[in-house]
Design a protein around this nucleic acid. Sequence first.
DNA 1: TAGATTGTTAATCGATTAACAATC
DNA 2: TAGATTGTTAATCGATTAACAATC
Lengths: 220, 220
Amino acid sequence: MPKGYDGKESTVSLSVIRRMPRYYRFLGELAKMGCTRISSRELSEKMGLTASQIRQDLNCFGGFGQQGYGYNVPALQDEIGKILGLDQKLNAILIGVGNLGRAIATHMDFEARGYNLLALFDNSPDVIGTMVNQHTVEDISILDSFCRKHKPDVAVLCIPKEAAKALAEQLIELGIHGFWNFSHYDLSLNHEGIVVENVHLGDSLMTLTYMVNKELNKNK
Amino acid sequence: MPKGYDGKESTVSLSVIRRMPRYYRFLGELAKMGCTRISSRELSEKMGLTASQIRQDLNCFGGFGQQGYGYNVPALQDEIGKILGLDQKLNAILIGVGNLGRAIATHMDFEARGYNLLALFDNSPDVIGTMVNQHTVEDISILDSFCRKHKPDVAVLCIPKEAAKALAEQLIELGIHGFWNFSHYDLSLNHEGIVVENVHLGDSLMTLTYMVNKELNKNK
DNA sequence: TAGATTGTTAATCGATTAACAATC
DNA sequence: TAGATTGTTAATCGATTAACAATC
């Protein structure tokens, strides 16, 4: 029996968790190409990590392989999907339908990642009422009543950083317990059981700035 | 003298590098609020990490503080900006002006992060010639001549994953040595001196899926 | 069975934290 | 000077890698 699979006392490290979606992705690609079987060594070569790490990572959740054979590709992908909870379908709302919010609402396959995207909200009359990817953009003023009625689990925040903290507090009151935060602000709420994934695209770009400049300085 | 400041033999770990933009951001906020002086302990409380780590991180690049005093906020921010190379202004192009590309071209302050955004490219007649944030979208067919003329350093890839690998190879031939990659594909090019920052928003969202589901399972 | 490859324990490596002497 | 806080070394912790017995 996989130890800690029930998700109760299990404490799988964040480093491991963050690799799971990548495994899922690679296994999906392999499955699509008709690959049904893979060893940790083969997968490690494709993904640029060690076979040891793959086996360690997977064994945090259970023994999905078979000695002498390797791993069944579609079965393993499916297991990882279940571990991540892609089958449960959390309810999500997105707030802030500017360029980024629109891009995410349009681009991102929420379904495939364990969500039903229920609604989009904005506060600008220019945007409210317009259609974005099957959804009519709602007025932020109905947020309270909407949340009480539909009980979303997760909010995607595509709003300016000034508005982020107050809105997050409001949303927590309304029962939201997960944030995918694109506002240029570190949400780190001191509320028990609230989960935040901060996406800082600016920080990512600045990391690249450093790395490229370092390369350039090397050759001069 | 800061050791390894010349960027030659210095090998500052990626974990440290990735924290630098966040320091830069927090220091900027503090400076904006008129704060001129801060100790590692105060900063650690604001940022949610240890004072030790802050001092260790900064001392990878030099001794920017003063015993008994702490750090000068604007001066330190400035130093970190220089470390990251925000003052050098790399030339960048963006390829793929779909929703995401448009959001990034419009949203992201490239100037503030060490870039001149030179041009946007797309292959769709619907988009070519339209204006996006001061730039006319160019036809991808002129990419070669454009690159030979303007010698961009970095390409922002907002294209479907199918196109990513081939385009990246082409861009390397054209002298690009850094990629900010949003295509749903792990660019890991075996070329010497090519730097890639992969942004996988889907992976980020799936990590949140796991974390929220884990919280939900806890309380049942 | 023999060969292959896992699951798992042990060893190594790196990153974080603690401690404290140096010094402003 | 005394107090505060850095820079830096040492200790701890966690994550990755290596090794190998279990087993398909």
